[in-house]
Design a binder for these strands. Sequence first.
DNA 1: GTCCATGCAAACTGTTTGCACGCGC
DNA 2: GCGCGTGCAAACAGTTTGCATGGAC
Lengths: 141, 141
Amino acid sequence: MKNQEQSINAILRAHGHRLTRQRRLIMNIILESREHLDADTIFQRAKACNPKISLATVYRALATLKKEGLVNEHPLGEDHMHFETAQLTPHYHFTCKQCGRVIEFEAPQVLEIIATLRQTKGLQVENVHLLLSGTCDLCQK
Amino acid sequence: MKNQEQSINAILRAHGHRLTRQRRLIMNIILESREHLDADTIFQRAKACNPKISLATVYRALATLKKEGLVNEHPLGEDHMHFETAQLTPHYHFTCKQCGRVIEFEAPQVLEIIATLRQTKGLQVENVHLLLSGTCDLCQK
DNA sequence: GTCCATGCAAACTGTTTGCACGCGC
DNA sequence: GCGCGTGCAAACAGTTTGCATGGAC
């Protein structure tokens, strides 16, 4: 885990950012919880550890971490944003409308779609959000 | 076009809604512009025709039309919502980060993905948002 | 006439920003 | 010590809501 922190530090410092106590805390919260946290949840958990931390700091830290590619942002709930650690294998999200559960899945077909768009329309795709919603297996009676 | 209005009326009345001047106006604005309008743009155009219309009415009309399946809502710009008339063929959206242009495309592979999820995980997909972003053909130097 | 829809303004939510102080390096 | 980062509060954008009036049917 020390290695991990050092590489995070290196990434940040490469662009003139500092690994502050707050950023480390926020990064750890996201790393430890393998869910999709929203800013406010991160804020609540961070407060448990550092009561003086502010919500603005959470947003600013998330913006920085996102810019450096350490976390990803997803519009899961239609309204506010959720965050997760950046991962190597691209994956997508299914949200159950009944229970709110978020299920991740892989879908190599998305790469085909992107390739087709580049070839037929000249579009250079840089970001992908595939968000499905419906009823999950447990909620189907 | 009279037929169209009558069927819209029928759909609304089936659920106890009324086809008011404002709803007709908003529906026409969305139908005529084959773009993806946001609530404020719809509001501006509606005001040109009915200066007393309020933004709240636009939002309420859009909510009703969406509930009745007449319009769809997309989180295109990452922040606020965009609306378009519901269409038979499912299609998806690419947003150019440079010029903001939105390009629609079809992608039958999405149906495969949905079928796979149902078969392997028992997920019943009801809504799909596939949102790509990057650089469009015109903006690539 | 009934009851849903509207207009207005105020509230609300998620997020951003200005500014003085704090702290990583 | 320099300069980015933080905390606080106020601002902001998009959207929703309470309430009295208006209009579709």
